[in-house]
């Protein structure tokens, strides 16, 4: 079952053609990795899935992206609704610096559910932090501000914040590129756990990471999708020469 299907997607920054005729699909409750050298358009592609790309000045998108049966680029689709179904974790932790850890986690949830009792909120906050594997570390610090946490802890609270709204898809843009090996390891563990709950698309330019966590891998180069397939196949037996050269470190 395809959760997301991309048809003839093109994207621009001003006159720069960044994504060129992308056709792809991502299976439900799979972990898919997008790899490729930096500047090839991985972030841009990810930001097309939750309609964030169009917020950049001069940015433009053409084509279709289906979330289940809904083309999210259909004229009358409200991007806000799309973004509530598709969560995102950014390259650098971006917790709201003016809110406590608790308020950060609940921030998205209270947007659509205005009237919540304290107990209900507590439950969502705890559940989300547990899912993100950070509950034990922050359970006594919920009223503190994010700046008191380490980068790795902040990033896992970001994951909790995205999970709290129970998204159907979770987009992750190099979520561990700014983190130490131990934090990276723990986030990878979390990602594997989350597979039961949500469809995950993770951008990484760390190939080992893609190999460790993902079921399927997409290889991109210069704004185009070169190859897509089961991760094991992409890494051991790629069909395209370009993919093989990238995997074996001939360029990157």
């Amino acid at each position: 079952m395809d959760k997301i299907r991309v048809e003839n997607l093109n994207a621009w920054f001003g006159f720069m053609h960044v994504l060129k005729n992308i056709n792809l699909s991502f299976k439900e409750k799979y972990i898919s990795a997008i790899i490729g050298p930096s500047g090839c358009g991985k972030t841009t592609l990810l930001r097309c899935f939750n309609r964030l790309h169009e917020l950049s000045p001069g940015a433009r998108v053409e084509g279709k992206i289906f979330l289940d049966d809904l083309n999210i680029y259909e004229k009358d689709v409200d991007p806000v609704i799309v973004r509530r179904r598709i969560g995102m974790v950014f390259q650098r932790p971006n917790l709201f610096s003016n809110m406590t850890i608790y308020d950060n986690v609940i921030a998205g949830y209270i947007l659509n559910n205005k009237r919540l009792s304290k107990a209900e909120k507590d439950e969502i906050v705890e559940g989300s932090l547990r899912l993100a594997g950070i509950w034990e570390e922050v359970k006594n610090r919920l009223r503190e501000y994010p700046s008191s946490l380490s980068g790795g802890q902040q990033q896992r609270v970001c994951i909790a914040r995205a999970l709290a709204v129970q998204p159907e898809v979770l987009l992750m843009d190099e979520p561990t590129s700014a983190l130490d090996p131990i934090s990276t390891y723990r986030i990878e563990e979390t990602i594997r756990e989350l597979k039961k709950e949500v469809t995950i698309i993770i951008v990484t330019h760390n190939m080992q990471q893609a190999a460790r966590v993902s079921d399927e891998t997409v290889f991109m180069y210069l704004g185009e999708v070169i190859e897509i397939g089961p991760t094991a196949e992409i890494f051991t037996n790629p069909k395209k020469k370009l993919t093989e050269e990238y995997i074996t470190g001939k360029f990157g």
């Binding site: 509530r84 971006n94 809110m99 921030a107 659509n112 709204v165």
Partner: peptide
Amino acid sequence: IDQREAGYALGMTKWEVISKVVLGNAR
């Protein structure tokens, strides 16, 4: 900008981003 994008990515409307995130940061 990353504070604003965090808001949009959570599904905030423009007005929610302004009132909760931008004004909150700037108060």
